[in-house]
């Protein structure tokens, strides 16, 4: 993983210094046009390069290339100027002169320190009780809240889809429909009645989103796509809706594939991918979006992309139960490429 990243960094550095062949350059530029992750990686490499130039750490040839390419444009000169300001002044910025935390930040830091491992268990117990009381209050508050709570409860032991629906805590996934029905049927009845009430209200982006998730969990993918699309029309930059719409499209695509309609499936997969990429562009640290994108590549048997995406996911999430599942998927993907 580290070697791959290093290799990519090296290639990007050569690209920035104009040291690649024309074909290699073109390949990188094709990806830079559409791959936001690569673009961010390149900006990081560019920062390192600017810092190296500012610190006189480049060879004479690299310095000449750098000046020719970077310093010819006003943007390049401004980047260098900012780098020099940061380098010069941050080096003079001792801990003592770092602006001290505000009162509110001190309170937050204090709380963070309070939650040391020794007190964590007690704190967690209090939190669980508190959350129970809070959930009960929320449950009474509105139909929408009732419905959301009921939906999450229904799937707290086993999630309905392999892909991640936003806001759902980790629960294992089983492809066996019968097992799922046994564990969730009773709870789903409560969900149905809670969501029925929502249909009478004037739709908002939030209610359309929750109704969309509800239909997604029930595997009514056409309805879910329709509702989430309407929700996104009301709030075009809503990342969680983009993610859930992507999941609905992908799941619908899987059904099309199973029923012998590969073109329809590919169209849904592509739309799902675009929504996920937009979600990542809007919220680059969204674990749900990265997880789903990796799983989509895997579903489409784009093994190398899937491997890259899982590895990237695991740089963002190394401890959750989702990351354990991601590691298992990564093993599957690596194995698939050997065959």
């Amino acid at each position: 993983m580290k070697n791959e990243l290093d290799e990519q960094d090296t290639r990007l550095r050569h690209y920035l210094l104009g040291e690649l062949s024309s074909d290699e350059e073109q390949l990188i530029e094709e990806r830079l046009l559409i791959d936001e992750e690569l673009k961010e990686q390149m900006l990081i490499v560019e920062e390192d390069l600017i810092d190296d130039y500012a610190a006189d750490n480049l060879s004479p040839q690299q310095q000449a290339n750098y000046q020719k390419l970077f310093l010819a444009s006003p943007e390049g000169r401004q980047k260098l100027q900012l780098s020099r300001i940061l380098k010069h002044h941050l080096n003079n910025f001792s801990e003592a002169s770092t602006p001290q935390p505000t009162f509110w930040e001190r309170v937050q830091i204090g709380f963070a320190q309070l939650l040391s491992p020794a007190t964590l268990k007690v704190a967690m117990a209090m939190l669980v009780v508190g959350l129970g009381v809070f959930s009960w209050w929320v449950f009474l508050r509105s139909d929408l809240s009732n419905a959301i709570t009921a939906l999450k409860n229904a799937y707290s032991e086993q999630r309905p889809l392999e892909f991640r629906i936003t806001g759902f805590a980790y629960a294992r996934f089983s492809a066996s429909a019968s097992t799922q029905n046994q564990t969730t049927t009773a709870k789903l009845k409560a969900v149905d009645s809670a969501f029925d009430k929502l249909l009478d209200d004037k739709p908002t982006a939030e209610s359309l989103h929750e109704l969309g998730k509800y239909n997604l969990a029930k595997k009514n993918f056409d309805e879910s796509v329709g509702l989430l699309t309407k929700g996104l029309e009301l709030e075009p930059d809503n990342t969680p809706i983009q993610i859930d719409l992507a999941v609905a499209l992908i799941e619908r695509g899987k059904l099309s594939l199973a029923s012998g309609q590969p073109e329809k499936a590919q169209a849904d997969f592509q739309s799902g991918k675009i929504n996920l990429r937009q979600a990542i562009a809007g919220s680059p640290s969204s674990l749900e979006a990265h997880f789903n994108l990796a799983l989509l590549h895997q579903t489409m048997k784009n093994w190398s992309e899937a491997e890259k995406a899982w590895r990237h996911y695991l740089t963002l999430d190394q401890v959750s139960e989702w990351s354990q599942e991601a590691r298992r998927y990564l093993e599957v993907v690596v194995e698939a490429q050997k065959q």
């Binding site: 046009l33 390419l69 444009s73 390049g76 169209a267 929504n275």
Partner: peptide, 28 residues
């Protein structure tokens, strides 16, 4: 992109990235 909204987003994103590429090549 077949979807008008996605296409508009993609247009903007590709344009931004093209500008960055030209900038990096020292264009004025």
């Amino acid at each position: 992109d077949q979807d008008a909204e996605n296409a508009a987003t993609r247009y903007e994103s590709i344009r931004r990235n093209l500008i960055s590429i030209f900038n990096r090549r020292g264009c004025h």
